[in-house]
Computed example of a mutant assay.
Amino acid sequence: MDYDIAPREGRRAARAAPVQEQPNAPARRRIEVLETYFGADGRPVKRKSIGAARVARRYDERGNKVEEAYFNADGKPTLRKGLGVAKIAWRYDERGRQIDASFFDAAGEPVQKGAAARDRALADA
């Protein structure tokens, strides 16, 4: 999923977009939230606690967080401080229970993380 990460007025922008999973399936709505941190000069700045200036989150139709991606002030993927990944994707079972977390580097390539990182990511969802 590509995110529109151009600077915007205000701190957060949200939009809902229909997602077709099958050609004949009814449209489902997912929520995308883009959170940007600004300095006094109105430009995006890195939030020290996470090491990113922008965070993009996607939620499924049940409200489960399915993806979180981190970007620098220039809009390029960057690694989250403390976790060392640029994107986390969560999966849920049919009952809405978290069953997996996947990690990706700044180039979008999968990263293998240990059980502790996976448990932390599942707890953060």
Score class of each variant (00 low, 15 high):
Asp93Gly: 00
Glu35His: 11
Arg29Leu: 15
Ala117Leu: 10
Gly63Arg: 04
Asp41Thr: 06
Glu68Gln: 14
Asn72His: 08
Ser49Cys: 03
Lys81Tyr: 04
Glu68Phe: 05
Ala52Ser: 13
Asp41Asn: 12
Arg95Cys: 01
Gly51Trp: 05
Tyr37Gly: 04
Ala107His: 08
Ile88Glu: 04
Val55Met: 14
Leu34Lys: 01
Pro18Lys: 09
Val33Ser: 09
Asn24Tyr: 14
Arg91Met: 13
Thr36Leu: 12
Tyr59Lys: 03
Asp41Gln: 11
Asn72Cys: 00
Ile88Val: 15
Arg29Asp: 12
Asn24Pro: 00
Ile50Thr: 13
Arg80Phe: 02
Ala101Glu: 00
Val33Cys: 05
Arg80His: 02
Ala117His: 09
Arg43Asn: 03
Ser102Trp: 01
Arg118Val: 15
Arg91Pro: 00
Arg28Cys: 02
Ala56Tyr: 10
Glu94Cys: 00
Tyr92Glu: 01
Gln20Phe: 12
Lys87Tyr: 02
Val33Lys: 14
Asp100Phe: 04
Ala25Glu: 13
Arg54Val: 15
Ala89Pro: 00
Ile50Tyr: 02
Val19Ile: 15
Phe103His: 05
Arg28Trp: 13
Arg30Leu: 11
Gly75Asp: 03
Pro77Leu: 10
Asp119Trp: 06
Asp74Leu: 13
Glu67His: 02
Ala27Ile: 07
Ala73Gly: 06
Asp60Tyr: 10
Gly96Arg: 09
Arg62Cys: 06
Asn72Arg: 07
Gly108Pro: 08
Arg43Asp: 05
Pro110Gln: 03
Tyr59Asp: 03
Ala56Phe: 14
Leu34Ser: 06
Pro44Leu: 10
Gly75Lys: 05
Val19Glu: 09
Tyr92Asn: 03
Tyr92Leu: 11
Val66Arg: 08
Ile31Asn: 06
Asn64Gly: 02
Ile50Lys: 03
Ile88Phe: 05
Gly108Cys: 10
Ala25His: 09
Ser49Asn: 11
Asp119Asn: 05
Val85Leu: 01
Val19Trp: 12
Pro110Lys: 12
Ser102Gln: 10
Ala89Gln: 13
Lys76Val: 07
Gly42Tyr: 02
Glu32Phe: 08
Glu32Cys: 05
Leu34Val: 14
Gly82Arg: 08
Ala69Arg: 11
Lys76Met: 13
Gly108Leu: 05
Pro26Leu: 08
Arg54Thr: 10
Gln22Leu: 10
